[in-house]
C-alpha cells in the first residue's frame, strides 16, 4: 500500500470514519508495509491490533454442532418429574388446613365483640359533678365493705386472712 495513504487513513480512523476494509489496510501496513516516518508513533497500535487479529483462533465449522450437543446433554438430565399422587393429596390437605386456620382466626372474634357491644353510654351519668358523687359513693361502699371484712377477719372468721392483711398494714 502506498505509504502516502497512511496519513489520511489515520486521520479518518481517529475521526471514526474508516470502514472495516480501511482498518484492515491500516493493520496490514503496520505489520508488513512501509510506514511514514513522522507517524511511527501510531504504528505499534495497529501492529498490535493486527497481531491480535491473526492470533485469534477462528471458530471451527462444527462449533454450532458441538455447542448444541453439549446443551442437549444437560437438557436431557433435567427431565420433568411427575409428582406422586400422595403429594397432591398432601397439598390439598395443607390448603384445607390453612382455610380452617383462617376460619378459626376470624370466628372467635365475633362472639367476643358481641359481649363488648353493650351500649353503656345510655346508663352514663350526665355531669362530672354527678359522676364524682357516684364515684365517691361507690368507693365509700367498697371501703366500708372492705373494712367490715377486715374487722370480721380480725375475729378469725375469714379464710382469706393473708389477702386482707394487705389492707391492715397501716
Amino acid at each position: 500500500m502506498d505509504h502516502q495513504m497512511i496519513g489520511p487513513l489515520l486521520d479518518k480512523y481517529f475521526e471514526g470514519l474508516t470502514d472495516l476494509e480501511e482498518e484492515n489496510r491500516l493493520r496490514q501496513a503496520a505489520l508488513h508495509g512501509p510506514w511514514p516516518e513522522q507517524l511511527q508513533a501510531y504504528r505499534p497500535l495497529f501492529r498490535y491490533l493486527g497481531e491480535q487479529q491473526q492470533a485469534e483462533p477462528a471458530l471451527s465449522s462444527d462449533f454450532d454442532e458441538q455447542l448444541l450437543a453439549k446443551l442437549g446433554r444437560h437438557a436431557a438430565a433435567a427431565k420433568t418429574r411427575q409428582l406422586p399422587y400422595r403429594s397432591w393429596a398432601l397439598r390439598a390437605a395443607a390448603a384445607f388446613a390453612l382455610a380452617l386456620g383462617a376460619f378459626w382466626l376470624y370466628q372467635p372474634a365475633a362472639p367476643a365483640q358481641e359481649v363488648a357491644v353493650v351500649d353503656w353510654s345510655k346508663y352514663e351519668v350526665k355531669t362530672p359533678e354527678e359522676a364524682f358523687r357516684v364515684t365517691r359513693s361507690a368507693l365509700r361502699t367498697v371501703s366500708s365493705k372492705l373494712n367490715e371484712g377486715t374487722s370480721v377477719a380480725a375475729q378469725g372468721f375469714d379464710e382469706n386472712l393473708g389477702q386482707i392483711k394487705k389492707f391492715m398494714r397501716y
Binding site: 395443607a94 390453612l98 386456620g101 378459626w104 370466628q107 372467635p108
Partner: peptide
C-alpha cells in the same frame, strides 16, 4: 406439607388467643 399444616394450626390457635 406437614410443616404447612402445622403453620395453619398455629395460625388458628393464635387467632383464638388474640381474640
Amino acid at each position: 406439607s406437614s410443616k404447612w399444616i402445622l403453620t395453619a394450626l398455629m395460625l388458628g390457635f393464635f387467632g383464638i388467643l388474640s381474640a
